[in-house]
Design a protein around this nucleic acid. Sequence first.
DNA 1: ATGCAGTGCAACCCTGAAATTGCACCCCAC
DNA 2: GTGGGGTGCAATTTCAGGGTTGCACTGCAT
Lengths: 120, 120
Amino acid sequence: MITGDAEVSQVLSALADPTRRRILDALVRQGGSTATVLAEELPVTRQAIVKHLGVLARAGLVVARREGREARYSVVPGPLDATARWMERTASIWGSRLAAIRKISEATDRQATDHGRNPS
Amino acid sequence: MITGDAEVSQVLSALADPTRRRILDALVRQGGSTATVLAEELPVTRQAIVKHLGVLARAGLVVARREGREARYSVVPGPLDATARWMERTASIWGSRLAAIRKISEATDRQATDHGRNPS
DNA sequence: ATGCAGTGCAACCCTGAAATTGCACCCCAC
DNA sequence: GTGGGGTGCAATTTCAGGGTTGCACTGCAT
C-alpha cells in the first residue's frame, strides 16, 4: 500500500516546503533554537516561522519546550527516519513490480510478433 | 545541506498529495495505464487525473507515451530512489548532529552544575 | 513596579493548487 | 466519411497555505 497513512502524508508535505527545510537545517545546526532567532537568519517574519514550526510540530518533526520566557524548538529525527524507510520500501516494491512487468511484456511481445512456431 | 535542490522539492510535493500517491500505486499495479482508466478507479475526474499526471511527470516520477489514440503513462523509479537516499543521508546527518549536541550539553551541564573540581 | 524582550493570538491579503465543466480535436473502426 | 472513444485545452470555482501586520500577554531584570 503506497498510500501510507496520514503520518507519512504530513511529514512529506511538511518537508515539501523549502523554508521549512531551511528551518530544520538551522535548527539542527544550532542544536535547537527559538522562533525569534530563526527569524533573524531567515528572510521571513517571526510569525511565519512560528506557523512553520507549528506544521513541523504537527508532523512530529519538531518539539517545543518552554524555558523561562522563551520557547525553544528541537528536531526529532524519528519521523524523518521512518519516512525514509517507507520510501525505500516503496522504491523497492516499484523496482520488483516494474521488473515483473518488463518480463511479462517481453513474453507478450515474443508471442505477438510470433517468434517460435506459428499457430494454425 | 538539507535544503536540497528543486528536484527534491518537486518530488516531495508531488508525493505529498494522497491522490497522487494512489495514482502512482495504481500505475505500478497495472504496469502502466491511461488517464481514462485511472479515472474509473479513482474518485476524481479524468481531468484531475491528467493534471496530477502532469505534476508527476514534471517531478520525473512518470513518463507519457502515445500509443495510437491513447496516452499511456508509466512509473519511473529513479527519482523516488534518489529522494529516498537523500532522506536517508539527511536523517543520518541529523542523528550525528544531535548526538554531538547532546554531548556538548552534557558537558555544559557538568560545568554549570560544577561537578568535578571547583574553579577559583 | 516598570520596562522590554520574547511569545501567542487573530484578522487579513494573495497566490497557487485541486477539482469540475464544457468543448474542440484526433484516431481507429465500420 | 462518419460515429464514437480517448485526449487536450481553457475558463471557472473553491479553498488551503504562506506571509504579513497589529496587538495583548508573560516573565526576567533593574
